[in-house]
Each structure stands twice: as C-alpha cells, then as structure tokens.
C-alpha cells in the first residue's frame, strides 16, 4: 500500500513540476521543451514499477520495468540477432525497394494524365486496405527467410508512398512552371530542378509514414512462419512460454529501432527540405 501511495504522490509531484515548467518563465526554452516530456515518461515508468510491486501483480501478467531492463541487458546477443534479421534484412531492404519503386511509378504516372487519373484512386483505395493480410500469401511464395518479410514490406509501403509522391509532383504553381518554360527547360530538366525538389516535403511525409509500416509488416510476416530468429518469431514463441519479460525486451528493441528509424528520416528531411516553411521558423 505504501508503494502505491508513494506512486500517487510521485505522480502529483511530477505533474505539478511539469505544470510549473510549462507555464513558468522559461517555458519556450529548448531545455524545458525537452525536459517536460522526459519527466512525463520517467514518471510513467516509475508509476509502472511502483504499481506492479505495490499491488503484487504477478510477473506473468505485467513484469516491472527493472525486470525487463535486466532481461534486455542479459540477452543482448539474442536481441541483436533478432534485430539484424527483422530490421536490417527484412524491413530495411523492403523499405528501400518499395519506396524506390513507388517513386519511379509515381514519376511515370505523373507523365501521363490518363495513368494518374486511373492509378491515384486505385492507389488511395489500396493504401486504406489491410495489406498485412497478404503476409501469409507472400510467405508461401518467398519462403520463410527474410525475403518474404521484405516482400510484405514492399507491398505495404508501396501505395502510401505512391499517393504521396504523386501529390507532391503536382504541387508546383503555374507561375513556377511558366518560369521554367521561359528558361527553355525540357521535361527532364523541369522534373529534376523544379518538381522533384518541390515534391520533397510530400515524399518525406510518405517516407516517415512508411517507417512504421515497414516494421509492422516485417514483424507480422514473421507470425506466419520464419527461421528461428527475428523479433516477431521471438515475440510469438515467448508469449507461448509466458516469458513476458522477453516479449517486453523485444518490444523495447522494436520501439528503439522504430524511433531511431523515424528520427533518421526526420533529420534527413530537415537537411533536404530546409527551405520549407515548417523548418524555417
């Protein structure tokens, strides 16, 4: 009971501190901007730890963060092996192939108005579909190893990326295009110097959406069959053994990988589209 009330006191204290920080004199400084979410996250973790210990929740149902951290540290080689299998081999290769293919198709579709009018509604429709459902079929076709996971990722990222790129390529004003025409620029020059750069904010939007989709695709595809390594494989077998600390450790791996992946794309976006209003502030 003591631990639970301690948790409540901690929660109230942290919230009060955040409220002071967020409305105080230094409210717009970079340090406060970083500190407030960090304090919130740390409080959640502390609440979890104290709550689990205080209420005597069985380990089988919800392991405490400290236990998960211990598992994480103790089984680092296994986790790394799973990370390489799922993320580097499955998700990343599929992501690169899928996004490159989508951009290429988008450029072709953009050249021919008929194709664009036909492909865009179909692409929009496909982007809303439960594409993960194709995972069993692709696993059947490409075998159990990472190739089938990459194939699932390709199918998953293709349509969101296509829709975004086509929208981006259409995002130039008639004034800008007229200027290119007065320069005597041909189709290819206009594409490379004006329309592709102008499409970059949209392309990066698609790339960022696809980072999450890629990880989801690779993990879900492993539920349908995989060699004896991989994040999805480890999660489904560990759940079967009720080794939930291992499951949470794998989730932490997936979360870190996903966040870093997203962060990397976002950092790249900042460098490439430095001219966009949302980055100039």
């Amino acid at each position: 009971m003591l631990l639970v009330s301690l948790a409540l006191v901690l929660w109230a204290g942290a919230w009060w501190m955040n409220a002071r920080l967020a409305t105080g004199p230094a409210r717009d400084s970079a340090a406060v901007r970083a500190a407030v979410p960090l304090i919130f996250g740390a409080t959640l973790l502390a609440l979890w730890e104290l709550g689990v210990r205080g209420l005597d929740v069985p380990m089988v149902i919800l392991p405490a963060p400290s236990v998960i951290a211990a598992t994480f540290a103790g089984r680092l080689p296994t986790l790394w092996e799973d990370f390489v299998q799922t993320f580097l081999k499955g998700a990343l290769s599929g992501y690169v192939i899928g996004c490159a293919a989508a951009v290429a198709v988008a450029i072709v579709a953009d050249r021919f108005a008929f194709l664009r009018r036909g492909l865009l509604p179909v692409g929009n429709f496909m982007a809303a579909l439960p594409i993960v459902g194709t995972a069993p079929i692709l696993v059947m076709w490409f075998g159990f190893d990472w190739q089938s996971k990459a194939a699932v990722v390709v199918v998953m990222v293709f349509f969101p990326m296509l829709v975004n790129t086509v929208a981006g390529l259409a995002d130039t004003g008639s004034m800008q295009r007229d200027l290119m025409r007065t320069y005597g620029a041909g189709y290819l020059q206009t594409l490379v110097k004006l329309r592709l750069p102008a499409a970059m904010p949209f392309i990066f939007n698609g790339l960022k959406i696809c980072t999450t989709l890629a990880l989801i695709g690779a993990i879900v595809a492993e539920f349908f069959g995989s060699p004896i390594r991989g994040v999805g494989f480890r999660i489904s077998t560990s759940v079967g053994q009720l080794a939930l600390d291992m499951v949470w450790a794998e989730i932490a791996v997936a979360a870190i990988a996903g966040t870093l992946f997203y962060g990397a794309i976002a950092a790249l976006e900042k460098r490439v589209t430095f001219w966009h209003p949302s980055h100039r502030s």
Partner: peptide, 19 residues
C-alpha cells in the same frame, strides 16, 4: 500539450502490432 504529445508520437513509431 508539452508532455503527452511527444509520447503519442513515439507510441506510433512502436510497432504496436508487436504487443
């Protein structure tokens, strides 16, 4: 806004399907 929003974004970079 300052404390929840960043975590809502992070929560989506976690492949929730894994859970």
């Amino acid at each position: 806004d300052m404390s929840v929003m960043p975590w809502a974004i992070v929560s989506q970079t976690v492949p929730i399907i894994a859970i």
